[in-house]
Amino acid sequence: MPTEISHINVQYDKTIGRGEQFGPGFNYPVFVARGQDDIMYVLCRGTEFRPEGVRVTVCTTDEEYVSTFARGINYQGPHEFNMEDGSLVWPTCIALDSQENLFISDEWLNRISSFSKDGDFLGKWEERTGSGDGELDRPSGMAFDADDNLYIVDSGNHRVQKFSKDGKFLFKFGTEGSGDGEFNMPWGITIDSHGDIFIADWRNDRIQKFSPDGQFLMKFGSSGSGEGQFDRPTGIAVDRDGVIYVADWLNNRLQVFDQDGKFVAEKTGEAGVSKWAKDKLDANAEMWGERERAQGLEREKDFWGPTGVTVDDQGRIFVPESARNRIQVYKTQSPTFAGPRL
């Protein structure tokens, strides 16, 4: 019996980012991966009009800009896309392996590309579009387990597949449907400290939990906007205490559940002016005045398009908002005794 959680206290910490086509800022961020130390990798989905907007922005949790790598496809010239190695079309998720290499899913190319943490292109799995074993149709969320095997949410095939790190098919579970262990275009995935797998079953508006070998364990959630209900959940994360966080996309909120899937709290957004945002406003100083005059400035706090959620080992929760080009960070106060002082 794991520790019983008596209080789950989630508080707003800070906001990171600003809208920017390139450089320090984000462009339709859809996923955050937390690396060693303070490093975070932010996956920018971008648009198809500006290839440089599609990228990974590397920065620290203190909002120091580090670098940018990968890019979108260049549309100039003939209509055939230039699908060269290392370019991304519809990037969806980053999974970090034990050496902190980045694996990025691309749900248009049906491709898994890998990069070193310095942004060097390492390689890609040979594209295998289809519905057979090991074939992919719009790969979405991904997560490595403790043995460096990669679970991929194969959304178009309504299933989850497990691969070795070099792309060898190991096994799969799930089929299309709404029963236990069935999926409707699933999206996010996370693996908890016991190796159990949580899936954001997107179009079924629920979360499902599975054992490492794909046995259905539990589910929670239904369609709607009430407590514990979802409108297309995108991302899911579980912290070291077993607390579950869900990015409730079209309800524009973060929901928090205990380890049994019981609703604990919701956060509709508390964003403030980030460090980069302040730089931007200082350079356009009259906007500080416009903000004073603006009607409903409190709307700036609200989530818009929360797409994915990531927790780190310090108990911080990162929620990228694709429509606001920023990341809201929350933190938990752990009920678990962590020592050493009374």
């Binding site: 920017e20 450089g23 800009y65 980069w276 730089d279 350079a283 356009n284």
Partner: peptide, 11 residues
């Protein structure tokens, strides 16, 4: 563009 820069570019 703006006389003052914004840290990495100009608006």
């Amino acid at each position: 563009r703006r006389v003052k820069d914004n840290g990495s570019g100009t608006d």
